Amino acid sequence: MHEIRLASRPTGWPTASNFEIAEVETPVPGDGQVLIRNIYMSVDPYMRGRMNDTKSYVAPFEVGAPLDGAAVGEVVASNAANVPVGSVVAHGLGWREFAVADAKRVRVVDPAQSLSAYLGLLGMTGLTAYVGLLDIAQFSEGDTVFVSGAAGAVGSVAGQIAKLKGAKRVVGSAGSAEKASYLIDELGFDAAFNYKDAPVREQLKAAAPDGIDVYFDNVGGDHLEAAIASANKFARFALCGAIAQYNETTPPAAPRNLALAIGKELNLRGFIVGNHNNRMPDFLAEVGGWLREGRISARETVVEGLANAPEAFLGVLRGDNTGKMVVKVGDEPAVRS
């Protein structure tokens, strides 16, 4: 079997040379463990931080060791009665063709659904959007919502949830005119703009002339500064990501107007979705229902082959994807019930 390893730590933007592919023996499951043949794996912006040897909310990747991350696959050998062979499971050992995991660390999923959806809309990506908007930003019906990185995996779901929950207006930023049109025409955003066309502060003010009540931040930097400028009194910010600065080697200049948060009495709160797994049942019930009813959608950008996973990851950092970026590692099961 093959696995992708971290070959070296990047300075600034990662390159293909920071990764290596290795051939190793297929592992054998022990007591209470299962062997999983990976089908899809996730590549996510947060993984860039794990390439650095710095303390954070999750341990850094180790040089010379395989990377890890969300994946979904088929159990092909099992020493756990509650997760038999043939089960389709979500787990945390992507970046390899086969993985051994403790049965208690995997989640059996419904194979009748789109399997890749368990890495996106029905997985941690969707849960991030759900928790960030409803719990962290405390969205209320009638709010005006701004989502940065809105054509990405999390942002696209957050904006749709806001619309479904009765937002007065939902505005999104994206990195191209095509993506901005996608937000309006396919996802139902009220307004969207290409952040490369003009200063974000100017475009947001035009798109939300009455200000914003909620900001779902995936970008940081000038987007966060613009949101502070447009924020209404008592606006709530969910700080989910800061992709604008993940590859910077110097401190970011923005936001330069943070003092406005005092007079406006803003609530800026960061969050880690892993601390909110208790919300998964509510999330799956509500978002799964919307999906079955055709009221919510999630586009995916699918890259074929484990060897292409590093380039898929670099593509996420560049913003090449629309919706969730996933890598197809292996074939789907021949029979799905």
Rank of each mutant, 00 (worst) to 15 (best):
A71T: 08
V89R: 08
P60M: 07
P84M: 07
Y195C: 00
R107A: 13
D44Q: 06
L258D: 10
R169D: 05
G188C: 02
P255K: 04
R295F: 02
G319V: 03
S148V: 01
W290R: 08
V89M: 02
R336L: 14
R50S: 15
P281W: 08
V219I: 14
E25R: 13
L122C: 12
R201L: 01
E332K: 09
M124V: 15
R96T: 02
A81R: 09
V72G: 04
V106W: 10
A180G: 10
A192T: 00
R256K: 14
L224H: 05
D217A: 05
V83T: 13
A158N: 05
R50F: 03
G69H: 07
L266I: 00
S176N: 01
V89I: 08
P111A: 01
D110E: 04
K55G: 14
E3P: 02
M47T: 14
G274W: 15
G305P: 15
W95R: 04
D53Q: 11
G289Q: 09
Q160R: 06
S181Y: 09
E62L: 11
A16L: 14
V327K: 14
Q33H: 08
G152H: 08
L35Y: 11
R318M: 06
D210R: 05
G288A: 01
R269M: 13
A101F: 03
L115R: 12
L6I: 13
D44H: 09
V157L: 08
G92H: 10
A261N: 01
G166W: 04
K55Q: 15
S56L: 08
S56C: 13
N267M: 09
F237I: 02
G64M: 13
A198I: 00
T250G: 14
A227I: 10
G159I: 01
D102Y: 12
D282C: 15
L291R: 08
V100L: 10
L127N: 07
M51C: 11
N278S: 13
G263I: 00
N218W: 02
G220C: 03
E225D: 04
G94A: 05
P252K: 03
N218L: 09
A81F: 11
G94Q: 02
P209R: 10
F189W: 03
I4E: 04
K324N: 09
L67P: 02
V43S: 06
E141F: 07
N257M: 09
A174K: 00
F19E: 08
G64K: 14
K264Y: 00
D68E: 14
A103Q: 10
D143Y: 07
G12I: 01
F98M: 07
V75Q: 10
M51W: 13
L317I: 08
R107E: 15
D331N: 06
D217N: 14
L317K: 09
V157F: 14
V219W: 03
V214K: 05
A285D: 10
F189L: 03
F237G: 02
A150Q: 01
A285P: 05
T54E: 15
E186M: 13
A112M: 13
A198D: 00
E293A: 12
L204Y: 01
G73Q: 04
G175T: 00
P60V: 13
S114G: 12
V303C: 12
G188H: 04
G330L: 01
F234I: 00
T125L: 11
P281S: 09
L314M: 12
A298H: 11
A158V: 09
E141S: 12
K264L: 00
A129Q: 04
